[in-house]
Design a binder for these strands. Structure first.
Lengths: 246, 246
DNA sequence: AAATTTGATTTCACGATATGAAATGATATA
DNA sequence: TATATCATTTCATATCGTGAAATCAAATTT
């Protein structure tokens, strides 16, 4: 890893930590050798990161990665784990319904399509992974707005002005809140051609064990092929995911 | 967190990452405010860590912790998770057998007692958490030696000289290898007063899904109370733990 | 549209700070 | 005991990170 950024010490520190991650445990000399750093420099860097619990020293003086690093990983690890756990379940859901299944996460005032299992039919709905959409035009987004509460939802409406995408887009704050809050209570939300004409969705939220929203799960299909019964399947998968996430 | 180590930038970087970890997402100005750093400094530090994937920028320019950090956390997180998962199972095992159950990890040429469920009987075996013992005098240690292979076991024997702790300690390299390798095949190992007179153990290994050894699980009891049947219980718990560890 | 504000980013001269050679300590090895 | 090996500390030096200020980019107001 010879990436170089603007701060030398940080690059070197990353090199040391990477070296340490690749071997579980190492002596100062080994680490200095692996990174090409002067032992004195490696020592100083290790002492600095050790002071923050990022590395610990075992009885024989060897260095190991410490538990202090896990506080940063929790969130991102959780997302990776969720993705991994979700993928097979999403594929199964795609096979049951024949339609595209999306795993969607929130970023600011948008949802991001994070993972998907694409329908195998000729006519199908397909979002690019990484693509984005405003909260109020997607089924998942509406659930997330509702979950954030009336106040936050209204603030969102004011902030964005609820731009219309189709004639069906909910562009009135009160209508949006009504629709969203009802969906939240019900447990699943619809998108009736609110983002794109001819396309309909059903979505549910995936939560962690403390009830915090991690992501949304949705099925996107041509409007006339969408079946309301799929809500049940979605809820079951979401429940299973919630259970599997610590 | 005003810990100060020997390297200023690293302290500041930790402060920035901690701030970021506490809020999920933040702007440059917010982070500079939270850490008391000059925006310019915060910006440079963020750019440096971003170059290594430690933080990422979302669509609206906000900073978030990135997945680049998870590579460091995997190992230590795994240990924490194992401990958490093991504790209730260990308590159940303690209640079934009435004896002390230990979760033991390897560190160099020693095993470390990491977690335990202590027997409630008047006469019981009790190791301090964090205490250590050489590999060849413990049941878990012998399994780990065998798992590392004949060569590594012999190297260990040469390196340490297999110091004797009791008259029962295996101080001959070939006897040690025989005993250990047989135990590995069988799936569980005994310690017949090899570490301390009057104390006997049974132990098994806990592995991850790829078969790597994560830890050992042992029951320690006064020699005459030890029951060979406990091996079955231990194996069942170890298997369940292996299954629950990704 | 133009003007204003706010925040992000870049620049740059300065001096604090990380550097690494060498000395010292601490342990293992012969 | 002597010798070697590795970890740690010291310290003079120049490098490297710093932060004030300038610039750039957007959002907001007039």
């Amino acid at each position: 890893m010879n990436d170089t950024s603007s701060i030398q010490v940080i690059d070197r520190m990353v090199a040391v930590l990477d070296a340490l991650a690749s071997v579980d445990k190492a002596s100062l000399k080994q680490l200095a050798g692996m990174t090409g750093l002067h032992p004195s420099t490696a020592h100083r860097i290790l002492a600095a990161v050790a002071a923050h619990g990022w590395v610990v020293r075992s009885a024989d003086g060897g260095y190991q990665l410490g538990s202090g690093l896990s506080r940063y990983a929790r969130r991102t690890d959780q997302q990776d784990r969720l993705r991994q756990l979700a993928l097979p379940l999403m594929a199964a859901l795609r096979d049951q319904t024949g339609e595209t299944v999306n795993l969607v996460m929130r970023d600011g005032d948008e949802v991001v399509y994070t993972e998907r299992a694409v329908s195998r039919q000729m006519m199908r709905v397909e979002q690019m992974i990484g693509s984005r959409a405003p909260l109020h035009v997607t089924a998942v987004g509406k659930l997330m707005l509702a979950d954030a509460g009336r106040e936050a939802c209204m603030a969102y409406a004011e902030r964005t002005g609820l731009p219309g995408f189709t004639v069906h887009t909910l562009t009135s704050p009160t209508l949006l809140w009504q629709d969203a809050s009802r969906a939240l209570v019900r447990g699943y939300a619809f998108d009736n051609e609110e983002a794109e004409s001819g396309i309909g969705c059903i979505a549910v939220l995936v939560r962690d064990s403390e009830g915090r929203v991690l992501a949304g799960l949705s099925i996107s299909a041509p409007r006339e092929r969408r079946r309301d019964e799929w809500a049940g399947n979605l809820l079951e998968v979401a429940g299973r995911l919630s259970g599997q996430m610590g």
